[in-house]
Design a protein around this nucleic acid. Structure first.
Length: 850
RNA sequence: GCCCGAGUGGCGGAACGGUAGACGCAGAGGAUUCAAAAUCCUCCGCCCUAACGGGUGUGUGAGUUCGAAUCUCACCUCGGGCACCA
């Protein structure tokens, strides 16, 4: 006769069953409910590459734990999912395999969704969209027009990386050793007219508001602060001896002015360009500078070069001193004024330059007591260090550089010699891409009217479907008819803009669209008002700067154009950046010593399963296809079920750190879940009136509720799981009554539900829980059961633990002292010595000092 | 180069300035079994000891404190971010 003990934990059966039950009950449809507090939890939406990986599983499980927990706490929860669906991989696939980017993308979305569904995530799929849906990018175009009207978007010439083979602009990170990452062609600098968002207008606000983001990681705030890069300096005009307009130099170190020995201007500086017109040598120099590789490594190695223009300027403080003006390849046009004065003694670049071209080197200050001239290493002490200034015009003698900088700026302003400035490193966001698979920029070029915005009623400007990728370049550009249109202003024949938007634009507002995904306007004010902001955003640290900064800007721009309330300008109240999933690498070598990598599923006990050959195992790193150290979530779900995958990725490491996937860990998780399931069966089958002592289990249950709640609130999922292990171990050994064991098992199911919802649902059902555990209210701990009436105190002698004593919780210090000193182990350790002092920390510790 | 962060058993990791190593993995021993798998029980930082027990121990060195993994300083190692930004 088959009894309960014959039943086995079968996730393959129970998981689909409960997923259907949730769908039928509509558990995860987000509803505006003014009677409840709302909670919006969002994970960074995926790029539809075609397969999910363990990183996705970890990211979405974290969000799901939060979403399910908040739902149980009575919040009206919004937990949506969508697809960051525009971008180059779709075009590359079309080039390599033929087909259309849209087909490729939508197929991938179907496949990935099919892989995600079995995870049992509490997602409101009715809100799903892809950024390549015309309904989405059409609204993005509408916002672009509004922003254009508000002056948040503009066009200007910019120097870009141009790949002459692929005929497209490349981002800096796509240029490797000066060559296009795909074509391998020598990358050129080209000047193109590009669209820009005026993010720099918000530099100060984006910087200042970082302080309000209390629930963001300090690391991310710091990275953004550095990226915005505020500096205080001064613009100083240098009068030219030939009477032409002065050259304005920007400096953050005007305190070193005394040591200025030349002025250097950027090759792109208007003065350089003007001179180059009848100076072939200079023209060649500027061309060479443009070709120069802009990657970090190359910058470091690149030689500092310059050309003397023959122009001279006067030192602002010592007008009798004439300084030569050089064009120098290390001066950037788009920071400050594109011109600097060189102080070789206190700047390494200037010093290298001065030594190369024989320019004078003069100290502006010395370290106290060390009056030595600079040789080949510039003297650059911290701005907070006190130094001795030489003959400083503002009367500064012994001072820190910071004090001297402030004094200098005051002096220059007072004498009308310069204007104090605050500058930012943050530059405007260039959004034009010469690509097909992106959101078309909705403007028209008309010979008569110039650049004209499309009419909103013509939106969306759809991408044409009949395109080919057999030739390099932008298919929109060479499409026979798509470009042709009527000018929205005059109605005459005109041409569409063929650039599309950077895909970062798509992801800069998707969180807002989720609040009203089908609205006929970009957002719906009532829905945005109710659901915004995102209460908890979860994603990878790799988006610390660009995506998050762009989104912060975009929310402000959306507010300015009436698409978001003022309360939503910081769209993410709390941010959590999760670690990666790693795995060991297994490799063997071929006959020529080259590594061959092997999938974890082909290796057992350090040997290849197929041949028995020993593999070399290297330490765990981020899962990557090229190293084959990947575990496919689909296989894990087939083998162990989704709950095992979910529990394991949450259990082993703190969520902000990397977690190492191990097969032994996954198996152990499955065994544990099987044990819990079998325990549920056993407890459910207990005769209802079986008696027992309930005190210990009651206490353990309330403690578990209290601790797990605190741990989940604090994103300490690994610790919550450790507590759940403890509690289920306690329950399995409990001698409590059937009534109490059943209650405790139901509470265990509730506490486990955020992590392993299917198993929890099954337990809850077996144990007679009411309805779905997914809809049940989170249990509350009774504080009365959280304190013991006696406590165990360690007793230390001179800070070293020697004994333990049990005392009443409310025992007085004197009583505790007495009990401690009369303890046998304490007397032994004291060995007759007289205590000098006894420290009693109630409920904590006793320390006897001898 | 500049700016952050982290170093705890064989491993992943716990620990409001108060019993270091919770919980899990791996390992050892035992029960069950004809045997194995599965399951259950016990042990498990290192050194000395048959045991009781003692010593030692959170990257290194100093310091503050009755008491330091935790606070301070210096150093070492690893990880991350930024970088001709004047």
């Amino acid at each position: 006769m088959p009894g309960p003990s014959d039943a086995r934990y079968q996730p393959q059966t129970i998981e689909p069953r409960w997923q259907t039950a949730w769908d039928t009950a509509g558990c995860f449809l987000a509803k505006v409910d003014p009677s409840r507090p709302k909670y919006y939890v969002l994970e960074m939406f995926p790029y539809p590459s075609g397969r999910i990986h363990m990183g996705h599983v970890r990211n979405y499980t974290m969000g799901d734990v939060v979403a399910r927990y908040k739902k149980a706490q009575g919040f009206s929860v919004l937990h949506p999912m969508g697809w960051d669906a525009f971008g180059m991989p779709a075009e590359n696939a079309a080039m390599q395999e033929g087909g259309h980017p849209a087909t490729w993308t939508y197929n991938n979305i179907e496949v990935m969704k099919g892989q995600m569904k079995p995870l049992g995530l509490s997602i409101d799929w009715s809100r799903e969209f892809a950024t390549c849906d015309p309904e989405y990018y059409g609204q993005q175009q509408a916002m672009f027009l509004d922003m254009l009207k508000s002056g948040l978007v503009y066009r200007k010439n910019a120097v870009v990386n141009w790949d002459p083979v692929d005929m497209t602009v490349l981002a800096n990170e796509q240029v490797i050793d000066g060559k296009g990452w795909r074509s391998g062609a020598e990358v050129e600098k080209r000047e193109l007219t590009q669209w820009f968002f005026k993010i720099s207008e918000y530099s100060e606000e984006l910087l200042a508001a970082l302080d309000t983001l209390e629930h963001w990681p300090a690391k991310v705030r710091l990275m953004q602060e550095n990226w915005i890069g505020k500096s205080r300096g001064i613009d100083i005009p240098f009068r030219r001896t030939d009477g032409e307009a002065p050259i304005i130099c920007y400096s953050t170190r005007p305190d070193t002015m005394h040591g200025a020995s030349f002025v250097a201007i950027s090759p792109e500086h208007p003065v350089s360009r003007a001179l180059a017109e009848d100076n072939a040598e200079l023209a060649a120099f500027i061309a060479a500078a443009r070709k120069m590789d802009t990657t970090e490594a190359a910058m470091e190695k690149a030689e500092k070069k310059g050309i003397d223009t023959g122009i001279t300027v006067r030192h602002p403080i010592h007008p009798d001193q004439e300084l030569p003006v050089w064009v120098a390849n290390f001066v950037l046009m788009d920071y400050g004024t594109g011109a600097v004065f060189g102080v070789p003694a206190h700047d390494q670049r200037d010093l290298d330059f001065a030594r190369k071209y024989g320019l004078p080197v003069r100290n502006a200050f010395y370290l106290p007591g060390q009056e030595v001239e600079v040789e080949n290493e510039a003297l650059v002490p911290p701005k907070s260090e006190t130094v001795d200034f030489i003959d400083h015009f503002a009367g500064v003698t012994k001072a820190t550089s910071q004090e001297a900088i402030d004094a200098t700026i005051d002096y220059f302003e007072a004498h009308d010699l310069g204007v104090g400035q605050e500058k930012y490193r943050l530059r405007d966001w260039g959004l034009s891409r010469q690509r097909y698979w992106g959101c078309p920029i909705p403007v028209v070029h008309c010979d008569a009217c110039g650049v004209v915005p499309e009419k909103k009623e013509n939106l969306p400007i759809r991408l044409p479907e009949d395109v080919s990728f057999d030739k390099p370049g932008n298919p929109l550009d060479r499409h026979p008819t798509w470009r042709n249109c009527a000018c929205p202003a005059c109605g005459k024949e005109a041409r569409r803009e063929t650039d599309t938007m950077d895909t970062f634009v798509d992801s800069s507002w998707y969180y807002a669209r989720f609040t009203a995904p089908h609205a006929a306007t970009p957002t719906d004010p009532a829905e945005a008002e109710y659901w915004m902001n995102v209460d908890q955003y979860i994603g990878g640290i790799e988006h610390a700067i660009l995506h998050l900064l762009y989104s912060r800007f975009f929310a402000r721009a959306m507010h300015k154009t009436g698409h978001l309330p003022a309360s939503a300008v910081e769209p993410f109240d709390a941010l959590f950046t999760q670690g990666m999933v790693t795995h060991e690498i297994y490799k063997t070598k071929d006959e020529r010593g080259r590594p061959i990598y092997h999938l974890p599923e082909d290796v057992e006990d350090g040997k290849l399963i197929a041949t028995g050959e020993a593999v070399e195992t290297t330490s765990s790193v981020k899962m990557s296809k090229s190293k084959k150290n990947v575990v496919d979530p689909v296989n894990i779900i087939e083998q162990f079920g989704a709950d095992t995958a979910r529990w394991f990725v949450m259990s082993d490491s703190p969520p902000e750190r990397d977690v190492e996937w191990t097969s032994s860990g996954a198996e152990a998780t499955f065994k544990h879940l099987s044990r819990v399931w079998a325990m549920g069966e056993r407890i459910a089958a207990m005769p209802a009136d079986a008696p027992g002592d309930d005190a210990d289990l009651t206490r353990a249950m309330h403690r578990a509720v209290d601790e797990v709640t605190t741990m989940i609130e604090g994103f300490a999922f690994n610790k919550a799981i450790a507590k759940l292990y403890e509690f289920s171990n306690t329950l399995s050994k409990s001698k409590a009554s059937a009534r109490m064991q059943k209650e405790a098992a139901r509470v265990l199911a509730q506490l486990m539900a955020p992590m392993v919802p299917h198993l929890a649902e099954d337990l809850w059902h077996q144990l007679g829980g009411d309805g779905l555990v997914t809809e049940a209210a989170w249990p509350k701990a009774d504080p009365a059961f959280l304190v013991d009436d006696t406590v165990t105190l360690p007793v230390q002698i001179n800070g070293k633990r020697k004994a333990e004593i049990a005392v009443a919780l409310d025992a007085s210090k004197e009583e505790v002292e007495k009990i401690a000193l009369s303890d046998e182990a304490v007397t032994r350790a004291l060995a007759g010595a007289t205590p000098k002092k006894i420290i009693v920390v109630p409920g904590r510790i006793v320390n006897v000092v001898i």
